[in-house]
Design a protein around this nucleic acid. Structure first.
Lengths: 356, 356
DNA sequence: CTGTTAGCGCGTTCAA
DNA sequence: TTGAACGCGCTAACAG
C-alpha cells in the first residue's frame, strides 16, 4: 500500500496524492475529495521514513530523562509525549542512565534517526551529552543552563520565589530557627538554592547558624541522616526546608523513629512536590515545581526551533515559577503555640480536611 | 555526510561501505579497516530513515503505557528502553490517555513509522487499540491476554501465587478474618484475583463472609472508602488484602484518621509494590509484581517476533511471578498477641530495621 | 570479494 | 492545476 496504488485508484498522479495529503492549496477540490476517499477506503498510512528521508525533517524529538524512582519525571514524559502527538511529532525516549556507553549509544541512535531536537530533562548537568548533539547541529533543550545559545535552548527555574514562600510561611508560623538541607555540592542548582535560602532568611532578619545548614545527595538516606544531625544539636531548629522531597520524606521517617513529632516538634518543607508528597502522613508541605510547565516549555521551544517558518530566536517564557503547597507537615512554631504541643489526634483531624 | 562521501574518501564503492557497516563477513579486512577509519574520522552516522525504508524493518518498537500517577509504569518504561538500546532498537513512546482521539492518533503515528511491534503495557484491556494494530499486521504485546495468537503476544501474571503468600502470611500471624478489596468489576484481572483469594482462603479452611469482600476502583479514595466500610462492621476483620497499593495506601490514611492503628488494629497487605509502598509509615507489606520482568518479557517477545531469523512461535516464559514482600503494615492477629496491642514505639522500632 | 544498478516511498521540481 | 521525472540515503540483487 503505497502512494502509487492510491494514485492509480484515484486516477491521478502520485504528485497529486502527495499534494493532497500535504494540504497544498492549489489542488482541485474535486480531485482532492476523490483522493481522500480512496485513501480512507484503503486505509492508507503514508510511510514516515520515506517522508523524513526526502523532506529532511524527521518530525521526531528525542527525550532523555533520568530513571530516578522519585516520580518527578514520569509526568514530564507524558506531557511532552502528548504535546508531540498533538503537533504530529513523535517521541524517541531514552533514559539517562549511569552507564556512559549506553548513554552515548542512545544519543547516537537519536542522531541516526535525525531527530529535529532533543530535550534533556534532568537537574544534573549533562555536558558530554549536550556536546554530542551540538557537534551534529541538533538543537537541545535543557533545564537551568547558564549559557544558552541558538543550539542550546533552556529555561531557568525560579527557585528563589518558592524558597521565599517556604521561609516566610515558616516565619509566619513563629519559627525563627530554620534549617536547610541543600543538594550535593556538585549540582549547580544546589548553590543557587542555598543562596536563595540565605537571601530569604536575611530579608526577614533571621539568622542562619552554620550548624543548621546541611547537605545531602537528594536521597531518602540523606534525609534520614539530616534528621539525625539536627536531633543531635544542642539548640535544635524547629523547622527545616529540604531541597527535594525525597530527603524531606527520609527526614520524616527518621524523625518518627526518633520519637520526633511532625509537625509538632519539627515542621518540614520539601521541594518539587512529587506525587509521594501528598501520600505521606502527615502530608508534606512542599515547594512545587510544575512538571507540566517544564515539559510544555521544552516542547514549544524545540518545536519553534525546528519549524523553519518560525524565527529561531523566539523565547517562550523566561522562567518556571515555583510555589509553596501548604499541607500537614508544617505547623506553628514555639513562638506561637498557645495550647502546648499539638496532639496526634489534632493533627489527624487537621489533616482530614486536606485528604487527597 | 552520506555513504557516498565515505565511499569516495575510502576509495571504494558505496556497496562496500554498506557491507562494512552491516558486518557482512565477505568484506576484505583491509578495505573494512580503511572504511571504518574514514567513518570514524568523519563522524559518519548512517541515516536510519533510509535504512528503514529500504530494508522494510524500522528497528523501532512502540511503547504505550498509561499515565497513571502510581509509579508502577515508569520503571517498565526505562527497562524496556534500555533493552531496546542494547539491541539497537528504538522506542517510540505514547501515553495511554483518556482521549480516544489522541490515542488513535498515537497508534496511527506508530503505524506510519512502521514499528516492528508495539507493547501495550496496562492492566486495562485496550481492545480497540489492539485491533488497530492487528489490522495492520503489527505484532502487539499485552499483559494478561486470554487469547494470544501469532500477532498478539502476551504473558499472564500469576496472581494466585502472590495472593496465596499474602493470605498464608496473615493466617500464620493469627488472622482468621481477612478482608479483600478487589479491583473494579470491569477489569478481568479483578475477577481472577478475587477467585484466587477465595481459593487461597478455602485451602486453609478460612471463611469469607460476603461483607468483607469489598470492591474499589484502584484509587486512594476507594481505599479510604474501604476503610470506612470495614470499620463500620459489627464484626471487623483484623487484616485486609488490597488488590493494588494505591488502595492500600488510601486505606491506611483513612484508618489513621479513624484512630485505627496499623498494624496493631488492622494488618494491611497491598499489591504491586509501587515505590511509595516502602515510603509509607509503617512501610507497606505488599505482593510484588516485577516491573523489570514484565518489561523484559515484552521486549524479548517482540524482538523474537520481529527477527526473521527466529522462529516466530518461541514463547519466552509462561508467566510472571508475584511475591510477597513483608514490611511493617502486617503484624500478629488477635489469636497471637501475647502482650496486648503493640505500642507505637514498638512498631517504630521494629520498622527501623527495615528502613530503606 | 567488489562495483554497478535498481529500487524502497515519498516530496518537489519543471514543463505542459 | 497536473503529471513525469529526479533524488533523498541506503540495501540487495547481480554481474564481474
Amino acid at each position: 500500500m503505497t502512494i502509487h496504488k492510491i494514485a492509480r485508484l484515484a486516477k491521478v498522479s502520485i504528485a497529486t496524492v502527495s499534494r493532497t495529503i500535504n494540504g497544498v492549496p492549489t489542488v482541485d477540490p474535486v480531485l482532492a475529495r476523490r483522493v481522500w476517499r480512496v485513501i480512507e477506503k484503503q486505509g492508507y498510512y503514508p510511510n514516515r521514513h520515506a517522508r523524513s528521508l526526502v523532506s529532511g525533517r524527521s518530525r521526531i524529538f528525542g527525550l532523555m530523562v533520568p530513571e530516578a524512582p522519585n516520580a518527578f519525571f514520569p509526568e514530564i514524559i507524558h506531557t511532552f509525549a502528548r504535546l508531540c502527538i498533538q503537533h504530529n511529532y513523535q517521541v524517541l525516549l531514552s533514559a539517562i542512565c549511569q552507564d556512559a556507553g549506553l548513554l552515548e549509544t542512545a544519543a547516537r541512535q537519536m542522531i541516526e534517526r535525525r531527530v529535529d531536537g532533543v530535550a534533556i530533562l534532568t537537574f544534573r548537568e549533562q555536558e558530554s551529552l549536550v556536546e554530542i548533539f551540538r557537534d551534529r547541529n541538533v538543537s537541545v533543550f535543557v533545564i537551568d543552563s547558564d549559557r544558552p545559545g541558538p543550539l542550546l535552548r533552556s529555561v531557568c527555574i525560579d527557585y528563589q520565589h518558592g524558597i521565599r514562600q517556604a521561609v516566610q510561611h515558616l516565619a509566619a508560623l513563629g519559627h525563627n530557627r530554620i534549617a536547610f538541607v541543600s543538594g550535593p555540592a556538585h549540582l549547580k542548582t544546589a548553590a543557587v538554592q542555598k543562596n536563595a535560602f540565605h537571601a530569604c532568611m536575611k530579608e526577614i532578619g533571621l539568622q542562619v547558624a552554620a550548624e543548621i545548614l546541611l547537605e545531602g545527595d537528594h536521597t531518602m538516606e540523606a534525609g534520614a541522616e539530616a534528621a539525625s544531625s539536627l536531633v543531635s544539636l544542642r539548640h535544635r531548629p524547629t523547622a527545616v526546608v529540604c531541597s527535594n522531597d525525597l530527603m524531606a520524606i527520609g527526614l520524616m521517617h527518621k524523625a518518627s523513629e526518633l520519637y520526633l513529632d511532625i509537625p509538632g516538634d519539627l515542621s518540614v518543607v520539601g521541594f518539587e512536590d512529587i506525587p509521594f508528597a501528598k501520600y505521606m502522613i502527615p502530608q508534606l508541605t512542599t515547594v512545587q515545581i510544575s512538571r507540566e510547565e517544564i515539559a510544555t516549555v521544552a516542547f514549544e521551544t524545540l518545536f519553534a526551533a525546528a519549524d523553519p517558518a518560525i524565527n529561531g530566536d523566539t523565547q517562550i517564557v523566561s522562567s518556571i515559577a515555583t510555589n509553596l503547597v501548604v499541607r500537614g507537615s508544617t505547623s506553628m512554631g514555639p513562638g506561637r503555640v498557645r495550647d502546648g504541643r499539638r496532639s496526634r489526634a489534632g493533627r489527624a483531624h487537621a489533616q482530614a480536611n486536606r485528604f487527597i
